[in-house]
Design a protein around this nucleic acid. Structure first.
Lengths: 152, 152
DNA sequence: CTAAGTGCAAAGCATTTGCAGGCTT
DNA sequence: AAGCCTGCAAATGCTTTGCACTTAG
């Protein structure tokens, strides 16, 4: 728990610093989205964040959540993750680490071993493709979905 | 070129064998989709395949392309790939290998070194997540998109 | 023959956009 | 005050679905 709180505080400070440095407004919506994202240890979709936020920030719109997340990605505060459920998921931890994607419920989580799948791709491949990033995704079924036997 | 032809032939034979074995119909549409997919060495979207097919199989519908691909995935003839462009891409090679995803044009291709990123994830993680598959995706810009300087 | 497969049109979702009004700096 | 942000509603784009017709086996 203290870990989550810690990173939440740190993340909010990072947001404030970045807004100042990059000259973007620090709005209650942006603060709220960052807080909502940091409060979870899974990697939620825009809509899940909207559902979380509507309680604390009544009147916030889905559109704003999408736009704020887009801004955060542009500012390198948040990483957008491709999942298998045709929804974008978001991770407040922008460092490179492997993810678990559940085929049952669509949840995206961190894999416990953060050093797993550390690769050294070349900057440029033999056919001239310039590599700027990579992702390692472990796919399967989370504990809950195994129990529920919802194997899709 | 002979490689592509080879794998196309092999793939069509695999399709026929699988249809027989699993009791599903071998329709011209299914044959066409498999041929269209095998004819490319990138990993196209359903819509790209539809565009390729409309010439050889006038009258084929987009819906059918989607449905045929879904069937192929179910029959393990084709693998569905998550990309970054919010479109599903399809790969006739179902074996595990790394992909290149271009942020410029959205193209998905094979990475030349097929043994790159071979990992040994555990069957079950410490928190009970059962791993059944994984993906290694290298993200960047293909040669064409570097030339065009379309860096989005 | 008959179940499986196809085509069409319409629906379904996640996400984006245009625009008018509101809020940060 | 000035422009960035937000909210609403409508639009977009990929994909799926309902239904009647067709075709493979």
């Amino acid at each position: 728990m203290s870990e989550v709180i810690m990173s939440e505080q740190k993340k909010l400070q990072e947001l404030m610093a970045t807004c100042r440095a990059r000259g973007v407004s620090l709005t209650p919506q942006r603060l709220g989205v960052m807080r909502a994202l940091s409060a979870r240890r899974d990697h939620p979709t825009a809509d899940q964040l909207y559902a979380d936020l509507i309680r604390q920030l009544p009147g916030i719109s889905r559109t704003t959540v999408y736009r704020v997340l887009e801004t955060f990605v542009r500012l390198d505060l948040v990483r957008k993750i491709d999942s298998r459920d045709s929804k974008a998921h978001f991770d407040g931890d922008t460092s490179l680490h492997p993810h678990l994607v559940c085929l049952g419920c669509g949840r995206v989580m961190d894999y416990e071993d953060r050093s797993f799948g550390i690769l050294q791709p070349p900057e440029v491949t033999g056919d001239g493709f310039r590599i700027v990033d990579y992702a390692v995704t472990l796919v399967g079924f989370c504990e809950d979905c195994q129990r529920d036997n919802i194997d899709r």
